[in-house]
Design a protein around this nucleic acid. Structure first.
Lengths: 195, 195
DNA sequence: CTGTCCATGTAAGGCGTTACATGATTGT
DNA sequence: ACAATCATGTAACGCCTTACATGGACAG
């Protein structure tokens, strides 16, 4: 369960509340991981039971207590173990590509609309990553923990580069479907020479 | 639920059994969708209750009956509707990138091992897609339904191109981590001029 | 005075995974 | 003779999503 380990990762840097964790997910790893707040609270509860984290309860008058979570020694060990264990192959699930795959069931106009919609969405997302990269770069210049920041930027870079490749494919697909051109790319067109 | 619609997509082309569907998933859309056979059977059962498909039971002596599923009119309408409705934005979940993101928690050697492991896995997968593309190209030349085949090849192309981008990123990341070089890419290095 | 932020959770349901079970046929 | 393939499923669990619920602080 990666969510547990992502939480451990954040808590290994500093203690946080469930709310803080939700914000951290939304603002920094959103491009490759997301979690609902209900999920975070439940997981934190389980992790407390498992001894991976400890609650520090800060009472507040007439409001729900704030609970700050600290990583335990066992938590650090678990995190280290997970970070050094190769993951089993993941199953992809991309519903959009199912729509494309069965594009021949509907009119090309309709598939085109889907492709354009996806394109707009990906482009907006890409612009957002670009902004994130920019702001993280700034921080890199001034901050101490270069190594931590480097890995943050590296994952963002991955998202950005894959976004570019995806956008290129989308543009090309849109052009071809719009032209009613069903000739597929040849192997030499598709694969770089080095192969 | 995309699984239902992927099943409807296949059944819109020809009637199939649960077993056939499992094979179809494994051999043609495996790169962007996978399903366990238990999941397929359960879903087929639900879809029968919903009137999206109909069972044709073919009894066999001393063996379990074969159940061939046919798409109904309601099923076709549902499929068409789904294929022409833009999908809500999907949440990504890539545990591997969490490992990279928290790479600073462990030694670079350990992160390097992860990166190399991923690289090997992706390369093998990429080679498999390449083979799939090759064989589908052959079929394209001889077969009737060019339009259907085109969309199949298009989704494969997507997987292949994204694979290339991902591999390039992995190679670059491996080189940089191996060299202990934590300088991030500048914006101009990362973004194409057109931007 | 309305909305957003802070901060916590519960409940129910949907989807996916893993393990188990059966048994004939076909290939090596 | 043994394994793989064909072909069907059940059971149980686990994770993720959606909706609901509470309530103070603070900004426009």
């Amino acid at each position: 369960m990666s969510l547990k380990h992502a939480i451990l990762g954040y808590l290994s840097i500093m203690p946080l509340s469930g709310y803080d964790l939700k914000k951290a997910f939304d603002t920094s790893v959103q491009h490759f991981w997301s979690a609902h707040q209900s999920q975070i609270y439940r997981t934190l509860y389980e992790m407390t039971a498992e001894g991976l984290v400890e609650q520090e309860v800060i009472p507040r008058e007439q409001r729900l207590d704030v609970k700050i979570y600290h990583i335990t020694k066992a938590g650090r060990e678990e995190l280290r173990h997970w970070l050094t264990t190769p993951l089993p192959p993941q199953d992809e699930r991309e519903p959009f590509l199912i729509q494309v795959f069965f594009g021949s069931v509907v009119n090309d106009e309709e598939t085109l609309a889907n492709l354009r919609h996806e394109r707009d969405h990906i482009e907006a997302q890409w612009a957002f990553y670009q902004e994130l990269y920019r702001s993280n770069l700034e921080r890199f210049k001034t901050r101490e923990n270069k190594r931590q920041n480097f890995y943050t930027l590296l994952t963002l870079e991955c998202g950005i580069l894959q976004g570019i490749a995806y956008l290129e494919w989308l543009d090309d697909a849109i052009a071809r479907v719009a032209a009613g051109d069903y000739t597929p790319k040849s192997l030499t067109e598709l694969f770089p020479e080095e192969d």
